[in-house]
């Protein structure tokens, strides 16, 4: 057991432990914070694997985006500071069984899969390579999914503006009252 493995187990412990706390905590805000640490643990594992780009993107998207969004919705929720009631026993059992089945499925697939070493040289995860891969049109390029996702995001942005914009025919006072 060298330092490398110890760091991996520490990161795994952080991820799993805070994930467990996130689902068992009775306070909504604390759950969000534990979720944050779980996601940071995953980013740490990416760093450990030396996939710095993925790790940084994980932090930008999940920590800077999703968790902040969750915390904001917790802030704006009515009575968010109160402790949540313990869920019904039947719900707990159903949730536990569902989680166990999912984990069993993933584990089964993982252990069944035989990893083969490849002869091809790994692509250096530099920014230039990632960019070329992302917008590449040949085999292994991601141009189409990239554009599809951009259109989806654009549609979401336009939708937000449509919802947020005030109807132009309303006089000023009414607009305020809405």
């Amino acid at each position: 057991m060298n330092g490398h493995t110890i760091i991996f187990y520490l990161l795994a412990l952080l991820t799993l432990g805070s994930g467990l706390l996130a689902v068992t905590s009775r306070q909504l805000f604390r759950s969000a914070i534990y979720l944050l640490f779980s996601l940071i643990g995953i980013a740490g594992i990416y760093f450990w694997l030396q996939y710095e780009f993925i790790a940084a993107v994980q932090i930008v998207v999940y920590v800077g985006g999703i968790v902040v969004l969750i915390i904001f919705s917790v802030f704006l929720t009515h009575q968010a500071g109160e402790k949540l009631p313990v869920p019904k026993v039947s719900n707990q059992i159903i949730g536990g069984v569902a989680a166990f089945c999912t984990m069993a499925l993933i584990m089964l697939q993982l252990f069944k899969y035989s990893y083969k070493p490849t002869a091809a040289k790994p692509i250096e995860p530099t920014v230039a390579n990632i960019g070329e891969q992302m917008l590449g049109t040949e085999t292994g390029g991601y141009a189409l999914p990239f554009e599809v996702v951009s259109i989806l995001l654009l549609a979401a942005l336009v939708g937000c503006i449509i919802i947020a914009i005030a109807p132009p025919n309303l006089p000023r006072g009414e607009e305020k009252a809405r």
Binding site: F29, I33, L36, I40, E52, F53, A56, V57, I59, V60, V63, G64, V67, V68, I71, V74, F75, T126, V127
Partner: peptide
């Protein structure tokens, strides 16, 4: 000397907002 230094800085600095939100709550 990380090869994504700039992205790392922007990513990690976005965590600082969490500490402010945490303190406020």
């Amino acid at each position: 000397n990380i090869n994504i230094g700039v992205l790392y800085v922007t990513a990690v600095s976005s965590i600082s907002v969490i500490s402010i939100l945490m303190a406020g709550w």
